[in-house]
């Protein structure tokens, strides 16, 4: 009983940290720091998945945890950092919308996500079911981050963070998706990042910048 509650406390702690990183990403200007935050988020995700696996004796979740550790903490940040280096945008800053406004919108979103998750969480039997709201909030905050950014790289990070949120929702609500789906999603994310990397080069070649404002020229009048 004590062990279970300890695990559930750990999971809740992880969820809180996840939400914190999501907010941090929402307000972070530096692209490089965004990548670091993304790596941290991946680590938290991986650890909390492992805790869920341990407490619920779901062995395939260990594989999920290892996979996300490998992919989201090591591989993807590595790729992104190399990309930033080769694109020479490591120290780029981004002009953001006013931080307090973004934060306030984010808080509204979190409230919305919690109220949305409440009836669904009732149905779940997982020990981590109360974290479903946080998972949804992470998805929405990442989406919000994509909306507020101008640079292509940070949008990709927002996209990846959204996937983190979905992954967390899956583990917390139903002890993870089937292994095949999880593998598929992981591969998709990897391939997607690689393809987007190629696009970055194309965009920069075309517009001499990674600022997506330039894409507005493509609009047909």
């Amino acid at each position: 009983m004590l062990k279970l509650s300890l695990a559930s406390q750990l999971i809740h702690f992880g969820a809180a940290l996840l939400l914190l990183t999501a907010f941090a990403m929402l307000t972070q200007r530096r692209v490089l720091s965004l990548v670091n935050l993304f790596a941290w988020q991946g680590l938290i995700l991986s650890v909390s998945t492992a805790v869920v696996a341990y407490s619920s004796v779901q062995h395939h979740l260990y594989v999920s945890a290892a996979l996300s550790l490998l992919l989201k903490v090591i591989l993807l940040p590595l790729i992104l950092r190399r990309l930033l280096k080769r694109l020479n945008v490591r120290w780029d800053n981004e002009t953001l919308l006013s931080v307090p406004t973004t934060m306030l919108v984010g808080i509204v979103l979190v409230v919305f996500a919690f109220s949305l998750a409440q009836p669904i969480a009732e149905l779940s039997t997982s020990i981590a079911r109360s974290t479903l709201g946080i998972a949804l909030a992470v998805v929405m905050l990442s989406f919000l981050m994509m909306i507020t950014r101008r640079k292509a790289v940070s949008q990709v990070i927002g996209f990846l963070a959204m996937e983190n949120g979905l992954f967390f929702a899956a583990t917390s609500a139903t002890y993870g998706m089937p292994m095949v789906v999880e593998l598929g999603v992981a591969l998709d994310v990897l391939v997607g990042t690689l393809i987007l990397g190629v696009f970055f080069f194309q965009i920069r070649e075309q517009f001499d910048s990674l600022d997506l404002q330039h894409l507005e020229q493509l609009k047909e009048d």
């Binding site: 919305f112 929405m140 997506l212």
Partner: peptide
């Protein structure tokens, strides 16, 4: 169609929120 990717993202975000609500 404004050509602004943030706006397009906002469209899908608003759609998502509306549908969820």
């Amino acid at each position: 169609q404004q050509g602004n990717i943030s706006l397009y993202l906002l469209y899908s975000f608003a759609t998502l929120l509306t549908l969820l609500a």
